[in-house]
Amino acid sequence: MSDATSSLTPATEAGVWEADYRDWIALLKPRVLTLVVFTGVIGLIVAPGHLHPVLAFTAILCITVAAGACGAINMWYDRDIDAIMRRTRKRPIPAGRIEPGAALGFGITLAVGSVIMMGLAVNIPAALILALSICFYVFIYTIWLKRRTPQNIVIGGAAGAFPPVIGWAAVTGTVDLVPLVLFGIVFIWTPPHFWSLALWANEDYRKAGVPMLPVVAGARETRRQIMLYTLVLVPLTLAPFFMGFSGFPYCVAATVLGLVFLLRVYRVMADKQDQDGCSLTGDAPAKGAFKYSIYYLFALFAALALDRLVG
């Protein structure tokens, strides 16, 4: 963290007390939480076995709180670059509504509390994987990779891929091949999803000095990488069917959703560009691909759960 940080995050004696409760909720990154929690719920639904509804709710709550805690700790660590980027400068810490130390304490308390609760109420393996996912997100992604390598979200994407494994472990107490495939799907989905965003937020990342792929390798190479990862992703989503874990309806849904995703990504590749590969259309196809990638993962996991429940 740079020395400039303190001047960018003006904490006054009244700072903590003037924060609205909505600011504390904003620290949890609620929009990101939605997808994380959803994939965790799906892991819990598709796992063989039964978990009492109260304990299932507790497991989901622990995943939600832990993911929120990661968001709070991330906002604490990234407060200097958040103040520079247009997309993030209104967050509670750079806007001066919450003191950085208070945000860190909030995040650590929630993280530790969620792991302890998962261990006591659900089971130890789920709690250990939850703790691993928190450590991975905070130490590997946020602190180590994010500011050092354009592969930040490739490796760091693993942190967001843990929830289906945790949901599965909450029911079964173990981890086997199926949750690892779900982990792989989210892991491979993350780069095309995030790089689509990075294509149009390129300038923000450049100003903040974050080595996202478009900043380091250029927009053209980023589009190529988005296509490569999507080409790996679509066949991988069919793995549950070929492993005999899901039925034909899921196979059809995954194929259709995947083909539409490929079409979206093709449009990103074919976007009108200048000599440097910069979009001449305001990155409209990349924005479309980013939005679709969110619906894609929702729909894919929902299809898997429906297939398991109905089939």
Binding site: W17, E18, A19, D20, Y21
Partner: peptide, 8 residues
């Protein structure tokens, strides 16, 4: 400030 404190 009072309103926000009450909300919290």
């Amino acid at each position: 400030a009072e309103r926000r404190r009450r909300g919290r």
